[in-house]
Each structure stands twice: as C-alpha cells, then as structure tokens.
C-alpha cells in the first residue's frame, strides 16, 4: 500500500521569544522541529506499512530548510520525501495550504502511485487550527476520519478501513472506504527510533523537491497569500490587566494561613464554597 504523511516543520514553541518592543517573533536561534502531533501520524503510517507492505511518502510544504524535517522523517523509516517549496506558497492560510498540499498529493499519486491513506497530525503546535487535514480531504474528495485513536483494521482487497475516532462523549467505531484521510490523535503511539540503516539511507536520500509548477499547480492565485480568504490585520501582545497582581509575602512572618485569610477577605463567599466542596470529597 502507499501512504502519504503530511508533516510540518515548526519552531519549537517552548523556545519562542517575543521582542518586547516590536512585538515580533524573534526567530533567530529558535530550533525547528517536526510538529509533534505529526509524529503520531507518521508512526501510525509506518506501522501500517510494516503490517501490509508498501511505502510511506512524507510530504511537507515550506522553505528549503524544511528539508531537514523530511530527512528526520526518513531516519524514522519513511521511504520517500517530497518538499513543496515556492515563493508562491508564502503566507498561505489553511484554505490555500490545503489547496497546495492536495495538488501535490495528486501529483505524488501520478508519479509514485495513488495513496490508499493520507495521514496528517491532529493539528500543528504553531497554528493550532486542525483545519488543514479536513481541507485536504475535501479538496481530494477523500473520506475523512479525524481524531483517530486507533486503526483497527484495513482490508486492502475490500478497500475498507475501520478506526476508533474520539468524539466528545466517547469513541465512535467507524468504517469507511479507501482511499481516505486520517488525522491521528496525540498519545496514541510512540515514534520509533530508526535503525542505523535508516539513518544512512536518510543521509544519502534525495529529497524530491517540487515548485508549484512541478507539483501541478494550475492556478497560482489559489496559493499563498493571494489564495487566502483570511487576512491577519493585527498581531499584538496582550495588555497587562490595569492592575497587576497584588504581591503577597510568604515567609515565617506571613505563613500559609495568613495567605488564606487574605484570600477569603478578597472573595468573601469563597470560604463557604470551599467548605462545601471539600466535604464532597
């Protein structure tokens, strides 16, 4: 079977700093990583390949430096990497991103064989929208299974897939037709450490690099900023509250029970409420 996994290279958000005066992101020195949510998708894909045979193609859209993340994915065991890079893609919102990725997936299908399953992570840690997966599915007319906790079975002859999907109040067991798009839930598996053979192969591997034209984009106006219906008008740091926190002391002279007394003075009803809650436990 052929599986395509969409990944994104993102700044490690734990290390992002905002310039205090200009309110812009200080990118220098911030390491980039594969979006952590995508690793669950990649591992699910690799496990399916191990079980059923075939190939895993990883795909990303980004600047040329995003090749680093693709190479990393190859060290985990992916078979092929495709980088979609072009200045026309810059500034894309989720609708324009889904157009570019869907177009590239179609091209991957024509070049390397039609995919049976397309995987994405649940969301990215920088955009946090969870919209690109469903967007790709809709554009490729694939059935979509989002928030998948487990793929219970794939029947390649009957062309069906059965999966457990997390929903608000429980778990849906869904069956649908292949090909389909799966967005994988976090914490559902653990990415393998690739072996030495994978590392060597990854180091030498050629990353398939496509421009918009190479990927088969016919309408550049659907890409990047021009293809994005949403417009970011303002980026700003939130203002502090008018009054900052009242700092209270914690020391031998001001022990914890004095703190609590202070707390209850500020919210007179709180003590009764806490007493009631505490009794319930």
């Amino acid at each position: 079977m052929h599986i395509v996994v969409c990944i994104k290279q993102v700044p490690d958000s734990a290390q992002i700093r905002v310039h205090p005066v200009t309110n812009t992101i200080m990118r220098q020195g911030v390491p980039t990583i594969i979006n952590p949510y995508d690793l669950f998708a990649l591992e699910a894909a690799l496990a399916l390949r191990d079980q059923h045979g075939g190939e895993v193609t990883v795909l990303t859209m980004g600047p040329p430096s995003a090749a680093d993340s693709l190479r990393k994915a190859l060290t985990f065991g992916a078979d092929r990497a495709v980088l979609l890079t072009d200045r026309f893609f810059a500034g894309a919102d989720t609708l324009a991103t889904s157009y570019a990725l869907a177009t590239a997936i179609r091209q991957i299908g024509e070049t390397f064989g039609a995919p049976d399953v397309v995987f994405t992570g649940k969301q990215t840690i920088d955009g946090d929208t969870a919209q690109v997966g469903p967007g790709i599915a809709k554009r490729l007319n694939l059935l979509q299974l989002t928030y998948v906790a487990k793929i219970s079975g794939i029947d390649l002859t009957g062309r069906t897939i059965t999966a457990e999907r997390r929903s608000e109040g429980g778990v849906q067991i869904l069956q649908t037709r292949l090909p389909c798009l799966v967005t994988m839930l976090e914490g559902t598996n653990e990415i393998r450490r690739g072996g030495m053979a994978d590392a060597l192969r990854a180091a030498r591997a050629e990353i398939v690099t496509w421009s918009a034209k190479d990927a088969g984009v016919e309408d550049i106006s659907k890409c990047g900023l021009r293809g994005s219906p949403t417009i970011v008008k303002r980026v700003f740091a939130p203002s502090a509250r008018a009054e900052k926190a009242v700092l209270v002391d914690f020391s031998e002279r001001a022990p914890a029970d004095a703190l609590i007394a202070d707390l209850f003075k500020r919210q007179p009803k709180l003590e009764d409420e806490l007493s009631t809650l505490a009794r319930g436990y």
Binding site: V10, D126, D128, I231, V232, V235, F236
Partner: peptide
C-alpha cells in the same frame, strides 16, 4: 485568537468571502 503557539494574539478578517 492566539498565534505562534500562543506567544501573541492576532486579529483575523475574512473581508471578501
């Protein structure tokens, strides 16, 4: 909404759709 992993806020418009 928050952006950049929650480091900043941004205001987004869909003006022409």
């Amino acid at each position: 909404r928050p952006t950049f992993g929650g480091s900043l806020l941004c205001t987004i418009y869909t003006l022409n759709f």
